[in-house]
Computed example of a mutant assay.
Amino acid sequence: MNYILRDENAVYYECGYSSDNALYLRLGSEAWLITDSRYTVEAKEAVRGAEVVEASDLLKAARALLRRHHVRRLVYDPKEWSAAAMEGLMRKLPHLYFHPQPAFSHRKRMVKSDAEIALLKRAAELGREGFDRFAQVVRERGIGEREKRLHFEAKAAMSHHGEYDLSFDPIVAVNANAAKPHALPTEVRLAKGDLLLVDAGLKYRRYCSDRTRTAYVDETLRFEEEQRFASARIQKAYDLVRKAHDRAIERARPGMTGAQIDRLAREVIEEGGMGEAFVHSTGHGVGLDIHEMPVISKRSDTVVEAGMVFTIEPGVYFPGEFGIRIEDMVVMREDRVEIL
């Protein structure tokens, strides 16, 4: 197959190296990593299975290779390319058919190797350690602090004070702010008896982790599944989300579609009378990108196979009041899912 990649993680997956100015071109059994002089020394040390080409104009270098090898068909992911970049690539190649395949690299990467699963497992373990570290911060000095300060502390704790990159900007939300699934930090101060939702992850050797916990705030705060809230309404909602989370993990099997796994969680919340408050999908794939395939949603017809890694993260959200989400990363094995 002939294809060209521009996304950094897609390029890294193919050859073990990427930069913010590089193209990966594969033509049959031959491959090239095209980059500029700022990166060629490092690229030649790291790239595997491809020849490093130094060029000041990456698109011009790619066109030259395509002409030299008389290529007639080239696959690309339109989500990776701007209109201007594609126009530059297609220039003076009138006989070349550019075949768009959305999510081309994500589809290739959907089933993880044992080595990738080991990296994702380690990322998840380190992420849990980050949650434990942040819980200690909240217990010792977090009560009374603003969400913005807690957000800063979460970034420090999750990154192990800069040792690891973060998978994404953490979500740290108190009470009503937690009713926004992607809440931004505010000036609200954390108080004893509050609800605290934290969604965060880190990268281990570029592979991401993703975890969410919702906790009752007091001097014994822990980001564990077992939680006891003072409000009976919040407790009912929390127990329902936990039941949905646990049921989806217990009953998901290889061969199910993403929609069927989504249904395992969603029907629990619907039967509990809170279906309208579950406003997002049950999960998403995780790998080099924080959002990959498969999608675990009510519209997903992707068949989930052994080796696929994804999240299970049901939630309910009541604007102006509170929100609850519980999320774990799992890998589908030959007979069931395993929490990473």
Rank of each mutant, 00 (worst) to 15 (best):
Q235K: 13
Q235N: 12
Q235R: 10
K236M: 09
K236T: 15
K236L: 09
A237W: 01
D239S: 09
D239E: 14
L240D: 04
L240T: 10
A244K: 10
A244N: 09
H245G: 01
H245F: 14
D246Q: 13
D246R: 13
R247K: 14
R247S: 02
A248N: 04
I249S: 01
I249F: 07
I249D: 03
R251A: 13
P254S: 03
M256V: 12
T257A: 06
G258Y: 04
G258H: 03
Q260C: 02
I261H: 01
I261C: 08
I261Y: 02
L264H: 02
R266I: 11
R266D: 11
V268N: 09
I269A: 08
E270T: 05
E270Y: 07
E271D: 11
E271R: 13
G273Q: 06
G273T: 12
G275N: 05
G275V: 07
F278N: 08
F278D: 14
F278G: 00
F278M: 04
V279R: 02
H280S: 11
T282H: 06
G283T: 05
G283P: 07
H284S: 14
H284N: 14
G285M: 11
G287R: 12
G287V: 04
G287D: 03
D289I: 05
D289A: 07
I290A: 08
H291W: 13
H291A: 15
E292P: 02
P294C: 06
I296P: 13
I296A: 10
I296H: 10
S297M: 11
S297Y: 07
S297W: 08
S297I: 13
K298M: 14
S300V: 08
S300K: 00
D301T: 14
D301R: 15
V303S: 06
E305Y: 01
A306I: 06
A306D: 15
A306N: 10
M308W: 02
M308T: 01
T311P: 02
T311M: 04
I312E: 07
I312F: 04
P314T: 14
G315I: 11
Y317T: 04
Y317V: 06
P319G: 05
P319F: 09
P319T: 12
E321C: 00
E321M: 08
E321L: 05
F322P: 00
R325K: 09
R325V: 02
R325W: 01
I326K: 07
E327D: 08
D328Y: 12
